[in-house]
Write a protein that binds this DNA or RNA. Structure first.
Lengths: 138, 138
DNA sequence: TTCCTATATTAGACTTCATCTAAGTCAAGC
DNA sequence: GCTTGACTTAGATGAAGTCTAATATAGGAA
């Protein structure tokens, strides 16, 4: 966590209380929070922080590659602090819960040139969908 | 296309002018339209059709499995009329253009039981991202 | 330390995409 | 050709996110 703050400082970030709090919230729990959830948790630590700042900070963290945006459904974006170890996602179609997963195989290699249509392909996201044990029980 | 309309009638759809128009728009071009684009094209054929009806109809087509929702970015959802042949998507990170692609390999088989966390996994979406030739040239 | 200024933060208005509501309309079976 | 419940409508509402203009402050300079 202090790692993250160090890295940010090293990148010329002006270290404000607000940014520290947002970084701490993300770094504290390895779950996939929405911007609103990040904001609520940040407010708990720093009551006067505004939504705009949370959005700004999340956007900056994403540009810096410290955090990933995950758009598993059309609801709110979620933010994934686990940006440094490649992984994919398993999403519950009912409750929206997300787990990080590590499939075998290399999907990038599975896309033949003939299927690239001249694109420069740089990235691939794999999203598994299903029903989580909780929702299956209910 | 008349196939589609036939299938829908067979499923008990009340065949209104509006639904026919929406189905025609989707079936006419194999591109990935947003709800708003579907609405514009529908309006061209049937000026009094409302946005709500377009959304309703798209939602029904999705529930019936005739059309797929694609959420490649956080902008508007897109609707993919190509629901009957399995495929994945290649998205331009700059302009948002989408192509259907058919990678080799079977990503569902690439997710070991140990990585399923008790979920019943039913589906997998693979989204390749890159830059399309148009945007690369610009 | 104090000052200065570019950078960051704020509240709240605004935009976009989507859903809801209540009233009116019409397809299809009788 | 009636009737009726499913369908459609305009516009209000909601959710998520972005923008703006005014204010505050981190961190370097003196």
């Amino acid at each position: 966590m202090s790692d993250l703050l160090e890295r940010l400082r090293g990148r010329g970030w002006r270290m404000t209380a607000q940014r520290r709090v947002v970084a701490e919230v993300l770094d504290g729990e390895h779950v996939h929070l929405t911007a609103d959830e990040v904001h609520s948790r940040a407010v708990a630590k720093l009551p006067e922080i505004s939504r705009a700042t949370v959005y700004n900070t999340l956007g900056e963290l994403v540009s810096l590659g410290e955090v990933l945006e995950v758009a598993t459904d059309k609801r709110a974006k979620r933010y994934d602090p686990n940006a440094h170890t490649p992984h994919h996602h398993l999403v519950c179609a009912q409750c929206g819960a997300i787990r990080d997963v590590h499939p075998t195989g290399n999907p990038l290699a599975d896309l033949p040139d003939s299927e690239r249509f001249g694109f420069t392909v740089s990235d691939v996201e794999v999203t598994y969908r299903g029903v989580c044990p909780n929702c299956a029980a209910a």
